[in-house]
Amino acid sequence: MRTFGDRVRHALLFEAVALAIFIPGSAVVFGQPVKAMGVIGIASATIATLWNFAFNLGFDRAMRYLRGSVHKSLAIRVVHTLLFEAGLVILLIPLIAWYLRIGLWQALLMDMAIVVFYLGYGFLFNLAYDRIFPVAAPAAHAA
């Protein structure tokens, strides 16, 4: 299992590398100034992190109240993921549209492209991270 320090390193590297790719890449793809996409990238990452904390806390409290447990079946995980992403879209789309002075439809399409980027990036980043920083093998327990 990863240590607290390793998890902090993972989170910081994940965001730093993502923003280093996202900001210039999205400026080119979306035809927006680098500064504007920097603001969008940093604000989106911050909002997503805060939303992740608040949503998961609320979701677990709701599960405990409604089901008496926070155990998540596969179906509940799917619902959890869809609700998280829907909430993030509701939070980000108006802000992106307002900041870039674009329509809500354009902001939604931009956000969908960003989601696709982060899905692929997250997968590749985690593969690389696991190779560069492998988890130490657990010590054998004494019999």
Rank of each mutant, 00 (worst) to 15 (best):
M37C: 08
M37W: 06
V29F: 13
F30G: 12
I47V: 15
E15R: 05
A18R: 04
N52R: 06
M37P: 01
I42D: 03
I40D: 02
G31E: 08
V70S: 14
A16Q: 00
A18S: 12
F55A: 09
H80Y: 11
R64Y: 11
A20M: 09
L13F: 01
T81W: 05
P24T: 10
V28P: 00
A54F: 10
F30Y: 13
F22K: 06
L74M: 14
I42H: 02
F55W: 11
A75V: 08
P24F: 03
D60A: 02
A45S: 15
D60V: 05
F14G: 03
L57M: 09
I23E: 05
L50F: 10
V70Y: 05
V79Y: 03
S69R: 09
F53H: 06
G31Y: 04
I40K: 00
D60E: 14
S44R: 11
Y65P: 12
R61T: 07
M63H: 13
A18G: 07
S44I: 14
V78C: 04
G31N: 05
D60P: 08
F53D: 01
I40Q: 00
T49W: 07
F53G: 06
T81V: 12
M63T: 04
F59T: 09
N56C: 10
V17H: 03
A48T: 07
V17E: 03
S69Y: 06
S44D: 12
L50I: 15
P33M: 05
R64N: 09
G68D: 10
N52E: 00
I23L: 05
G31C: 04
F30C: 13
R67S: 12
L66Y: 12
A54K: 09
V28W: 06
I21Q: 04
R64F: 12
A20F: 05
G68T: 07
N56T: 13
M63F: 07
I47H: 08
V70D: 11
L66E: 14
Y65V: 15
L19H: 01
T81D: 11
A43V: 15
T46Q: 01
V28K: 06
G31Q: 07
L74F: 12
A54G: 13
N52F: 05
F30W: 14
A36T: 01
I76F: 04
F14L: 02
L57C: 03
V79I: 12
I47D: 12
N56I: 14
R61L: 15
A20D: 07
L82S: 15
A75N: 03
L13A: 03
F55C: 09
F53L: 11
L82E: 11
R67K: 14
T81E: 09
F53N: 01
T49L: 13
L74W: 11
G31P: 00
V29Q: 09
M63K: 10
L13C: 00
A43W: 06
I42E: 00
T49K: 10
V79M: 11
E15K: 03
F55T: 10
G38E: 06
V28M: 02
W51F: 02
A16D: 01
V70M: 08
V17G: 02
A27W: 01
V79R: 02
L50V: 15
A27K: 01
I23G: 02
A18E: 00
L50H: 08
T81K: 07
A54H: 08
L66W: 13
V29N: 12
F55S: 09
F59S: 08
R61I: 13
S44L: 14
A27M: 01
S26Q: 11
N52C: 04
A45D: 07
F30V: 08
N52D: 04
R77Y: 00
